[in-house]
Write a protein that binds this DNA or RNA. Structure first.
Length: 285
DNA sequence: CGACTCTCCTGGGTGC
DNA sequence: TGCACCCAGGAGAGTC
């Protein structure tokens, strides 16, 4: 599942292999992949054809390309299973190839997505330079203008559980289920801890842990990047990340050895250490 | 308005 | 071998 580090790896790949290229043909193979482009697949193709990519940008898990028609941006969200790949034109089509952009250097930018939760769209650029659908997304911890104290204050003002707050992309962006669990484990906090009972040091601790674990993952993901193969890959570095709790049910906690537990929350799994992360007295589900 | 649930989707895994 | 079922989960829509 691409979260902030994986999306940043993709952005870097786009910056290296796609910025400066011109789109010479567009093929939408699955309309659902452009469902957020309300004028439809034909308009999507027309707005992209002939455009030159001038920059690759990101906020949280959203990724976009700037174009030589500055009013337009190509917005991408990878969802759960989306990938952006640069492939030579003669490479075999992937099973779940959804969108193909032919480039002027003999390569293609391909959007591949098994579950089609993700997709591409051409969006208007707002006054602050963001695609309109990204305007409500908070800055992520890698953003130079990210202000941790602002996020600490917002979290403590909320009336909800801590993990829900960490996953709220309007509070802090880029954190998904995996890094939320890892950050909570590092900070030794339970996912159902009521945000209102969190003191400032604890809030700083969990946010700092989220930034640190994502930075570490980015450090690993950046290494598996290699030109002209599966080089702009939403899952780069994903499998060799070292995860303390996520997906580690019944395995020993790396800190204390207690068996990691899995609990259901928000229709997804939460992994934690029963000893390092005791359930709060009055949990906020 | 804030908090929260529902829903979209596909394929790998599992149990009978 | 086949088939029903569960599960992965980001984020916008909708409800209260």
């Amino acid at each position: 599942m691409p979260e902030l580090p994986e999306v940043e790896v993709v952005r870097r790949g786009l910056a290296e292999h796609v910025v400066g290229r011109t789109v010479t043909a567009v093929e939408v193979r699955h309309p659902r992949a452009v469902r957020r482009h309300l004028p439809g697949p034909l308009d999507f193709a027309a707005r992209l054809d002939g455009r030159t990519v001038t920059a690759a940008r990101r906020r949280g898990k959203y990724l976009w390309l700037e174009l030589d028609r500055p009013a337009d941006l190509v917005l991408a969200h990878l969802g759960m299973s989306g990938q952006l790949l640069v492939q030579p034109v003669d490479a075999l089509d992937e099973t779940h190839l959804r969108i193909r952009l032919r480039l002027d250097d003999g390569n293609e930018l391909r959007f591949v997505d098994q579950r089609t939760f993700g997709g591409l769209s051409v969006e208007d650029r707002t006054d602050d330079g963001l695609p309109a659908p990204v305007a409500h997304i908070a800055r992520d911890p890698f953003d130079p203008a990210y202000l941790v104290e602002e996020v600490v204050a917002r979290i403590r003002r909320k009336d909800t559980g801590l993990k829900r707050a960490l996953l709220d992309q309007t509070v802090v962006s880029g954190i998904g289920n995996i890094y939320a669990d890892e950050a909570l484990w590092r900070a030794q906090l339970h996912w159902a801890r009521p945000t209102a009972t969190l003191d400032r040091p604890a809030a700083r601790r969990v946010l700092g842990a989220a930034a640190a674990v994502m930075a570490a993952a980015l450090g690993e993901g950046g290494t598996s990047f290699d030109a002209l193969y599966v080089n702009i890959n939403g899952e780069s570095g994903y499998f060799d990340r070292s995860l303390a709790v996520y997906g580690q049910e019944d395995r020993p906690c790396p800190r204390c050895g207690t068996a990691i537990r899995r609990e259901s929350f928000m229709n997804r799994s939460s992994y934690s250490c029963p000893r390092c992360q005791p359930r709060p007295r009055r949990p906020h589900w």
